[in-house]
């Protein structure tokens, strides 16, 4: 799968200078099977880009195509299908439900497509070091623990691209590597691309580094 950006610029960023940007007001293609690391200081539109690619924001000039369908022709129900089967997101705000347990948060998402078996979910929790905390309410977990649950949830669906918006910000080096490995394994299995944003100084290795 391919995501092709055509001269995209969010309204709030249009008066800024984008001479050095590889994305804004440029033509750019994301290919599946590759990993992209987007590092930039805050305020340059990392989350804006993720939101645009996930169909959450419409306030931008330009257009982008998912396979051959242009963004302006995609309806709400098209986006529901894309979010279930093509593009997975681990948002910066995590979007966990505090009233549900960690495991239930994952199951909620998995129930939409039944991508993972119970065993596979347990296996991922184990690898992330979260197996012991799976029955705790998400609301009482630490932010780093929440991030790991949100990543596992994002992996519990079929996808051709996975978007990770500062998904490792509260993880120590060891956990960061563990999760990165989990993501890469899953992406490889699904022949999917990875789009990862960070504040810069990222130690993880991605195929292509992009600056905004």
């Amino acid at each position: 799968m391919q995501i092709r950006l055509k001269q995209i610029i969010p309204f709030p960023l249009q008066d800024m200078n984008h001479e050095n940007s590889a994305i804004w007001e440029r033509d750019f293609s994301f290919e599946s099977r590759k990993s992209y690391g987007i590092s930039a200081p805050s305020g340059t539109g990392k989350t804006s880009l993720i939101s645009i690619l996930y169909g959450l924001r419409k306030d931008f000039h330009g257009s982008f195509l998912i396979d051959e369908t242009a963004s302006e022709f995609m309806s709400t129900s098209d986006w529901i299908i894309i979010r279930r089967t093509k593009i997975s997101l681990c948002p910066q705000g995590l979007w966990l439900f505090d009233d549900l347990s960690a495991l239930e948060n994952i199951q909620l998402k998995n129930a939409l497509t039944l991508q993972k078996s119970e065993d596979e979910i347990q296996n991922m929790l184990q690898k992330a070091g979260m197996a012991a905390h799976q029955h705790k309410k998400a609301g009482i977990l630490s932010y780093g623990q929440k991030q790991r649950i949100a990543i596992i949830r994002a992996l519990s669906q079929p996808f051709k691209f996975i978007l990770l918006d500062e998904a490792f910000s509260h993880l120590d080096e060891e956990n960061k590597l563990k999760m990165w490995e989990l993501i890469q394994t899953e992406a490889k299995q699904q022949s999917a691309g990875i789009i990862l944003t960070s504040l810069g100084g990222e130690t993880l290795h991605s195929d292509i580094s992009i600056s905004l």
Partner: peptide, 12 residues
């Protein structure tokens, strides 16, 4: 907010 989250996760 919860409904917004659910919709973003792909719930119809």
């Amino acid at each position: 907010h919860k409904i917004e989250k659910l919709k973003a996760l792909g719930f119809s």
